[in-house]
Design a protein around this nucleic acid. Structure first.
Lengths: 336, 336
DNA sequence: GTGAAAGCGCTAACAC
DNA sequence: GTGTTAGCGCTTTCAC
């Protein structure tokens, strides 16, 4: 069994032409039962498995879609990916996944590799929303769906979550509980989620006539460590907040670590709401309030959009989904 | 730019033959400088990207390795994968990843797809250690490296961690702290890690002449929920243990959730050590003691072994790596 | 240095 | 129903 058997080997063993074998492999029918049986036997005898390579080459489709995420260690993305894969499998699509580590350069490289491999479409959360570096995809006519972050310089289908609204809800909740000194750990302001969540924060403050205090606005980068440092800074400032809103899950983790180390009592001395659910939310004490997004649904919708793009190559207009996040109030925010 | 340009388009534009273009693409040298320049220009003008499909077909290698893990939501595996990918990238290899959900059936299907796609090798943590269902790979002469769990019915390179020793260390630690009623949440006994960690548990007990009490041995399946239920059962038994050893990280999470809900005081009323590190270990209170494995290193070694197999097709003997885990003692285990 | 040509394994007309 | 054949886009002898 050293070398892989080909369709020709099967044909020979079954004494038919390769065309007939092909028909059987692809269930196209129009083959006499006896013949089919002979072929099926030959296939199993040889342990024949058809080459997807050769097939894709001929058909000009690989039934593969590429997924690009900025940070695979952020649990948000695996959940989205799970949604994508679920739907993809149903439709006979296969996925390949790469993480860019938030680097535009790596992203460009991955796009290139995806094109080389002939992906039928790409679902991407880009590290750089201008999108110039992934224009190659469009040049090649490969459908794209943007998730969580938009692409500015050309039109693609997108599925987003209403970040402004989510952050607004969270901060309003804190305000309604009597907080006025509410800090925010921001995400990068050159990303839509980072910017919009900050906007939601500001919107809530404005609405309740609470002046924006820049010493309560901490710049983070969506990574755990920046949440950690941000919490530290707030703790040691001479202007300690009574509540903190964290712009994403990783930074939430960092914050909680810091609070624990500082013994800054969560829910008592400082209220807390984070954007995105985290695994620990429900079993640390007090349980964490979070803005929760339908991650799997996001993935499912993204695939659906992409699938339609791949199949109705016509002129679909740009489509945009905007899902509404849900505020889950638990114990980490208390009345003041 | 509707249709992707091919090597032929480039050749035409540069007024050379496709053979010459191929030489340039592959940096094979032996092309006059002027010619090369003309070709390079043509390539960038057309936005040409070579088809990995056609290339792989001709070369009979895809520079792709397949990775199969049983549960992608278990953070252990992403970390191993990160190690693999890191090394793979360095060597110009690309990875495709699939999760079987601990299902032999899905695993078989994935193996099939991998073969169809012509992966050059496979790194696998199998859902079924007999390995019968993945024999296809061997039949096709595709190199395999087993990680974390062995393959019984044929020989492959493996990289394992000394599970017996890790569990033994953990349980001994508990014994030395005065515990005698030590419970274990087991993994599936038809997997090596599940079985070996149980063996380590028994070994420690024996060594210190503590009789094995079957009511303290809980069967789990490595999934979070079974840890949760296990802890519940122990709590409500009329034979409550003073310490718990959990056989993997997911079940540890489940246990901690249960303890929290039950208000069964970790570190005070019940000591705890889990196999494998978990993110929350260091910032829940008390901090969790764990048996820690060098996850990234495991991945790196696995790729190295596979790489050698792929390239020295000769008669390498079966190789087996056995890494030693490290006991990290924190606050969740106390003297009784 | 460069080109012509033979495939890699498959699908899809098109014949019979 | 089944076979013949022309590619898909590339790499790689082997000529020149």
């Amino acid at each position: 069994m050293e070398c892989k058997p080909t369709i020709e080997d099967v044909a020979k063993l079954a004494s038919v032409s390769i065309a007939t074998v092909s028909r059987v492999i692809n269930n196209q029918g129009g083959v006499r039962k006896v013949t089919e049986e002979r072929i099926v036997n030959a296939i199993s005898e040889l342990g024949y498995i058809r080459s997807a390579l050769a097939r894709s080459m001929k058909r000009k489709e690989t039934n593969t879609i590429g997924i690009i995420v900025p940070d695979i260690t952020n649990p948000f993305f695996p959940h989205v990916v799970a949604g994508i894969e679920q739907k993809a499998r149903e439709k006979g699509y296969y996925t390949i996944l790469s993480s860019t580590n938030e680097s535009t350069i790596i992203e460009e490289e991955i796009v290139r590799i995806f094109i080389e491999r002939g992906v039928d479409g790409v679902i991407i959360t880009t590290a750089n929303e201008t999108g110039d570096h992934i224009k190659l995809l469009q040049d090649q006519g490969i459908p794209i769906v943007a998730v969580d972050r938009t692409i500015k310089n050309f039109e693609v289908d997108t599925v987003l979550v209403d970040n402004v609204n989510g952050a607004y809800q969270a901060v309003r909740q804190l305000i309604l509980q009597g907080h006025e000194r509410i800090a925010i750990i921001c995400g990068p302001q050159n990303t839509t989620p980072g910017r919009e969540r900050y906007l939601g924060y500001k919107k809530a403050l404005e609405e309740y006539n609470i002046p924006l205090d820049s010493s309560l606005v901490i710049q983070g980068d969506f990574m755990e460590n920046s949440g950690y440092k941000g919490a530290l800074r707030l703790f040691y400032s001479n202007n300690r907040p009574t509540a903190i809103f964290s712009s994403n899950n990783q930074m939430t983790i960092g914050c909680v670590k810091a609070l624990t180390e500082l013994d800054w009592k969560l829910g008592e001395e400082v209220s807390f709401i984070g954007f995105d659910d985290v695994e620990i939310a429900t079993f640390i004490k007090p349980r964490l309030s979070v803005v929760s997004r339908p991650m799997t649904t996001i993935g499912e919708i993204a695939f659906q959009l992409l699938y339609e793009r791949i199949h109705f190559k016509g002129n679909l207009p740009k489509r945009e989904f905007l899902l509404t996040p849900e505020l889950k109030i638990r114990e980490s925010c208390h009345k003041i």
